[in-house]
Simulated scan of single mutants.
Amino acid sequence: MSFGDPNPNPNNPYGQQPNQPPQEQPGYGYPQQPQQGQPGYGYPQQPGQPQGQPGYGYPQQAPGTLQANNGYINVPVLGTVQVASMGRRLGARCIDAAVIGVLYGILSAIGVASAMGIAKSVDDCGSSLDPGYQSCVNEASGSIIATMLGMVAIFGLITLLYEWLMISLLGSTLGKMALGVKVVKENTGLNPGLGAGFIRWIIPIVGVFLCYIGALLVYLSPFFDNSGKLQGWHDRAAGTLVIKK
């Protein structure tokens, strides 16, 4: 044995104090400490959970859970998002109404010009004493009525395609895009799709036939939602949620 030798026992092959586990190796009664960013033995890591996140001992909020009624909600794929305020949604609705109003105005001008052109053609029918005068007038009148009905059909088609297709496929109309509002499926976080988009569109349209009172109630129905999600009746029926992008 030489001086300064920390191993007084020459038969100890590890060159360490007796009853001391080898360095860099966990011994009996000496559990190894988990490395930083790794879950410990008491908190096994969840499948697919990123490293450094708490394990089963720290449950996360389920999708669709409103956080402390503060306007934020957990949505699949998107994570934590903010529910769009009613002021922002109303502003988007006003922009959409202006866009559709401009289209209606253009089409109405075209329709009126066509009807006036048809009305002037009555002068070509000749005198009221002519045998074919009445049939000529009836034909012109029928053309004017057909033109007006055609314009109404086009108006309805524009409203359908604008609101239904844009919400279904993009999640936003032009007004919603301008104010950062988007409609998503609550259970997936994706765009509503054609089915849910149609349900969401048709419910207010049905209310229009009740002297517009039904449609107004549908658009105001988010104020009656006590869940904090500001879901209108049309959103609940379609399973959609209006969020801020």
Rank of each mutant, 00 (worst) to 15 (best):
S2K: 06
F3H: 07
F3G: 06
G4L: 09
D5P: 10
D5G: 01
D5H: 09
P8S: 13
N9R: 06
N12K: 09
P13A: 02
P13L: 02
Q16H: 11
Q16V: 11
Q16T: 15
P18E: 15
P22I: 07
P22R: 02
P22F: 00
P26S: 15
P26E: 09
G27Y: 03
G27P: 05
Q32Y: 06
Q33L: 13
Q33D: 09
P34A: 14
Q36E: 13
Q36A: 09
Q38F: 10
G40E: 08
Y41Q: 15
G42Q: 13
Y43I: 06
P44D: 08
G48F: 03
Q49W: 06
Q49V: 01
P54E: 01
P54F: 00
Y58F: 14
P59K: 05
Q60F: 02
Q61C: 06
P63H: 06
G64M: 03
G64L: 05
T65W: 01
L66K: 08
L66W: 00
Q67Y: 14
A68G: 11
A68D: 15
V75Q: 04
V77G: 13
L78Q: 03
G79I: 01
V81M: 11
Q82D: 02
M86S: 10
G87P: 03
L90R: 03
G91L: 11
C94E: 12
I95A: 06
I95W: 03
D96W: 04
A98Y: 04
A98C: 14
V102M: 06
L103P: 10
L103T: 00
Y104F: 13
Y104K: 00
L107I: 05
G111N: 10
A115S: 14
K120V: 03
G126V: 02
L129D: 14
L129Q: 15
Y133C: 02
Q134N: 15
S135T: 12
C136P: 12
V137T: 07
A140V: 00
S143M: 11
I144H: 05
I145E: 14
A146P: 12
T147G: 15
T147Y: 11
M148L: 14
L149S: 03
G150V: 00
G150P: 10
G156E: 15
I158D: 13
L161G: 14
L165F: 12
L165T: 11
M166C: 15
M166P: 07
L169S: 11
G171K: 06
G171R: 04
S172H: 05
K176V: 01
M177R: 11
V183P: 04
E186T: 04
T188F: 07
G193V: 08
I199A: 07
R200Y: 05
I202E: 05
I202L: 09
V206W: 02
Y212R: 13
I213P: 12
G214L: 01
V218F: 01
P222K: 00
D225A: 00
K229N: 04
D235I: 03
A237C: 05
A237H: 07
G239P: 07
K244H: 14
K245Q: 15
